[in-house]
Nucleic acid binder design. Structure first.
Length: 481
DNA sequence: ATGTGC
C-alpha cells in the first residue's frame, strides 16, 4: 500500500505513519499538513525519505516534516531529525547542500508611499550593488587569513570590520556565531570557492526583496517586533554559497566511506551518517559550523550593501534599517529538549525547517523574551512572506521547529516547461512587482505555480500551534540571481 | 543549493 494511504490522522493538522508500516523504522514519521496540503504531498519521494529518516541511528521521538515538504538529497526538505547526543548519527544530508541557508528581515522607517512609482528603479539600484548569480564573486576581497577569521568568528568579524552595527548582533540566531567552528576542518578547495563570495546572493530561490507590511495579525507582538501596516521592509534569503556547498560535498564522501566501520548501514547512501562523537562526525560538525558562520557574515555584508544603497536612494528621508531577526533553516544544533518528560541533549537536524523557540527560552535574545523568537518565512517569488513568532507548543511537539517557506510542488525542469517568462513578468508588473534577475530561466524555475500556496502552509503551522502569525509582507522589488 | 544537468 502506498505510504500516503497509511497516514493516520492525529489532529486536523498532524498525520502519522506508525513504525510498523516499514521494516527498520524506530520511531513514527509525522507530517504537519491540512487535507489540502496532503493532496500535494507524496507525488515525489518525500514520504519514503521521511520513513528512511525514522531508521537513523539514535533517532528520537519522531521523524517530522512540515507542510512545505518536498523531496531532497536523502532527507526530505522541510524536515527535522533529532538524534540522541553524544553518539547518535550526524548526517550532512539532514542539513543540506546550502549550509545555513536562511533569511533575515530588515525593518525601515519608511512606508509604501515613499517608494511610489520608483519600485523598478529601486530594483535596479539594488541589483547594481549586490552581486548575484551562479559562481558570482563579490566586492569584499579577503586574504586566506581573513577568511579563516570569518569562519571562526562569524558576525563578530563583520562588526570588527565595519559591516555590522553593535545592535545587529543580538538580532541574529545564535548571535551570528557558532563557537565550535574550525576552519581547519574546511578543505582548501571549499575555502577557494568562498574566498571571493562574501556579500553575494547566489541563484536558485535566493533573493533580496523589498516588501511592505500588508497585514498585521498580532498587534501586540508586531509592536514589539517594530512592524506597522504599510511599512517598507527588506528580506534577504541566501546561504553559504560555494563554500558551504563544497563542505557538504566533501563530508558526504567522508560519511559514505567511514560509516561501515561504525557498523552503520542506511536505506539510501544519501542518508550516510556517522556517530556525532566520532572523529569524522566532529570534523563535519566543526566544518558545518564554520560554513554557518560564513553564511551569517554573508547576510550581514549584504545588509551593509543594502544600507548603503538605501541611503543613496531615499536621500533626505530617515534611511535607518534595523535587523528584525536572522534565522537559519539548514543547520544542525546541539539543543536540550524534553522527551517523555525528561530533559535530553539532542543533535537537531533542521533541513528546510526554521527554529521556533518560544517565550523565555534562554537562546532567545532578551528583547524577544516575552514574544518568542521572530520566525521569518519567505514565500515564493511574487507571493506573500510571513513574520511569525516561536511558541512553547513547538518546544513540546516539533523540537522547537516550524516550516521554512512555500515548498516546491514542481521540479525546476517542469517549471521551465510550464512557465512563459514574458507572461510571468507581465503578470508581476501588473501587480507592481519588479524583478531584476541575471538569468531568465532562473526566474521561471521560481514562478509561483512551481510552489505550494504559502498562505495554506502558514495556516497549517499556525493552527498546529508550532508558530503563530504576526504579519504578512507583500513584495515590491525583487533582486535575483 | 551549486564555477547546475538533460
Amino acid at each position: 500500500m502506498e505510504l500516503k494511504n497509511q497516514l493516520i490522522k492525529k489532529s486536523d493538522y498532524l498525520w502519522e505513519l506508525p513504525p510498523h508500516v516499514k521494516k527498520g523504522m524506530k520511531v513514527p514519521a509525522q507530517v504537519y499538513a491540512s487535507r489540502k496540503i496532503l493532496e500535494e504531498i507524496g507525488g515525489d519521494k518525500s514520504l519514503e525519505q521521511l520513513t528512511n529518516v525514522a531508521m537513523l541511528p539514535g533517532i528520537t521521538k519522531a521523524s517530522i516534516v512540515m507542510p512545505d515538504v518536498h523531496e531532497g538529497y536523502g532527507f526530505p526538505i522541510g524536515g527535522i531529525a533529532a538524534t540522541s547526543w553524544p553518539n547518535g548519527g550526524i548526517s550532512p544530508g539532514g542539513i543540506g547542500y546550502d549550509i545555513n541557508c536562511g533569511v533575515r528581515l530588515l525593518t525601515s522607517k519608511l512606508t509604501k508611499n515613499d517608494l511610489k512609482g520608483r519600485g523598478e528603479e529601486l530594483a535596479k539600484a539594488l541589483f547594481s550593488r549586490i552581486p548575484s548569480g551562479v559562481g558570482k564573486g563579490g566586492n569584499i576581497p579577503l586574504s586566506e587569513k581573513e577568511l579563516d577569521k570569518v569562519l571562526t568568528h562569524g558576525v563578530q568579524w563583520a562588526l570588527k570590520n565595519g559591516y555590522a552595527l553593535e545592535e545587529d548582533i543580538d538580532k541574529i540566531e545564535s548571535w551570528g556565531r557558532l563557537d565550535n567552528a574550525d576552519p581547519g576542518c574546511v578543505s582548501e578547495y571549499a575555502k577557494n570557492r568562498g574566498i571571493d563570495q562574501l556579500g553575494t546572493i547566489g541563484s536558485g530561490n535566493h533573493f533580496v526583496e523589498v516588501s511592505y507590511v500588508d497585514k498585521v495579525f498580532d498587534h501586540e507582538v508586531a509592536r514589539i517586533f517594530g512592524l506597522k501596516e504599510g511599512q517598507l521592509t527588506v528580506l534577504i534569503h541566501t546561504g553559504s554559497r560555494g563554500l558551504g556547498h563544497q563542505v557538504a560535498s566533501d563530508y558526504m564522501k567522508v560519511m559514505i566511506a567511514s560509516m561501515g566501520k561504525y557498523g552503520i548501514s542506511v536505506q539510501d547512501r544519501e542518508l550516510a551518517c556517522v556517530p556525532f562523537n566520532s572523529p569524522e562526525g566532529q570534523d563535519y560538525f566543526r566544518a558545518m559550523a564554520a560554513a554557518a558562520n560564513y553564511a551569517w557574515c554573508n547576510r550581514q555584508v549584504i545588509t551593509w550593501e543594502i544600507r548603503n544603497a538605501w541611503k543613496d536612494f531615499f536621500k533626505g528621508k530617515d534611511t535607518r534599517l534595523d535587523v528584525l531577526y536572522d534565522v537559519a533553516h539548514n543547520i544542525a544544533k546541539v539543543e536540550d529538549h524534553i522527551v517523555d518528560g525528561k530533559k535530553k541533549k539532542l543533535i537537531v537536524h533542521r533541513k528546510g525547517s526554521t527554529r521556533s523557540f518560544g517565550p523565555g527560552h534562554p537562546e532567545v535574545t532578551d528583547c524577544y523574551k516575552d514574544t518568542g523568537q521572530p520566525v521569518i518565512i519567505p514565500g515564493s517569488m511574487g507571493t506573500a512572506s510571513y513574520v511569525m513568532a516561536g511558541t512553547e507548543h513547538a518546544m513540546e511537539e516539533s523540537f522547537g521547529s516550524t516550516c521554512h517557506g512555500a515548498g516546491r510542488r514542481m521540479s525546476c525542469r517542469a517549471a521551465q516547461k510550464a512557465v512563459n517568462i514574458h507572461e510571468l513578468e507581465k503578470e508581476l508588473a501588473e501587480r507592481n512587482i519588479f524583478v531584476r534577475a541575471g538569468s531568465r530561466s532562473g526566474v521561471s524555475e521560481e514562478a509561483p505555480i512551481a510552489y505550494k500556496d504559502i498562505d495554506e502552509v502558514i495556516e497549517v503551522v499556525h493552527q498546529a500551534g508550532i508558530a503563530k502569525k504576526v504579519a504578512r509582507l507583500r513584495p515590491l522589488s525583487v533582486i535575483k540571481g
